[in-house]
């Protein structure tokens, strides 16, 4: 069963990682969901698919009051990211869903109305949560054509969506990256195949290198922290992407 792990706390400002579901059937890709809490408000990043909703809801409820959920952040449009939308809205119909403007008319196929969606323009935007000013950072074409990361400048955490994702074997499923060289082997094929644009990748590497990041938290796999963050950015910058093999 998924559990919420507190990965950052400063007073009533918290980041929770909901990760590792041992009871999940093997044919569904494992996902990480992140909850940012500040005071009386919470934002759920990439809430996940329909099948894992009970596990995510239960893990979230164990750590914070689910009625405080003010919004959902969908890095892009994939089903493992946001197909649970209708269920979150079933619980709280006034939830806002922040996502690229590109997906504004696509995501209602999963649920929601025109008032549900807050379209993020291509250059990004600020998302207010309690006293926080979160930054939606462009990551277009990595891998989706309308794609955003979410940066919390106070916690110095970058939610990177599919960037940094690794498809880990069961015996290497630690919450944090412990051995970068060993870990990154499980990220390589994914990044080569999924990330479609070398130019977009270089832009992203430059953009995030300017941010102060203590933790880079992806939607699949383990969390990069400390020096591993820059290590990952350098590795990604050098990686040939958009290739089937090689």
């Amino acid at each position: 069963m998924k559990q919420a792990h507190c990965i950052f706390q400063e007073d009533d400002h918290r980041w929770l990682a909901i990760a590792r579901d041992a009871t999940k059937p093997g044919y569904i890709i494992d996902t990480n969901e992140y909850v940012i809490v500040d005071g009386e408000e919470a934002l759920l990043c990439d809430p996940g698919g329909i099948e894992i909703f009970p596990a995510v809801f239960s893990a979230l409820s164990a750590e914070c009051d689910p009625t405080k959920l003010a919004g959902l952040f969908a890095s892009h449009q994939d089903p493992d990211i946001i197909s649970s939308l209708a269920l979150w809205l079933e619980f709280k119909p006034d939830l806002k869903c922040y996502t690229s403007w590109l997906w504004q008319s696509f995501l209602p196929h999963f649920g929601g109305e025109d008032t549900t969606f807050v379209p993020i323009p291509d250059p990004g935007m600020t998302i207010k949560l309690g006293s926080l000013e979160l930054q939606a950072v462009p990551a277009h074409y990595l891998h989706s054509s309308g794609n955003f990361n979410l940066y919390d400048p106070k916690a110095k955490i970058l939610f990177s969506g599919d960037i940094g994702a690794a498809l880990l074997p069961p015996d290497q499923g630690g919450l944090y990256v412990e051995d970068f060289s060993r870990h990154i082997r499980h990220a390589e094929a994914f990044h080569k195949r999924w990330m479609g644009s070398d130019r977009a990748k270089r832009d992203w590497c430059e953009r995030v290198s300017r941010l102060e990041i203590d933790m880079l938290v992806p939607q699949h796999g383990s969390i990069y922290q400390g020096a591993d963050v820059q290590r990952f950015i350098n590795w990604f910058a050098a990686l040939e992407v958009g290739v089937l093999r090689g």
Binding site: I50, P54, A55, F57, S58, A62, P66, A86, L87, F91
Partner: peptide, 28 residues
């Protein structure tokens, strides 16, 4: 769709216990 949503939400509530907001969600 509604039955599926209700069933999944009921399962989530079973796992989470009686957390705030679930009664209203169920009623709706």
């Amino acid at each position: 769709q509604q039955q599926r949503n209700s069933r999944i939400l009921a399962e989530a509530i079973r796992l989470a216990g009686e957390v705030p907001g679930v009664r209203e969600a169920r009623k709706r």
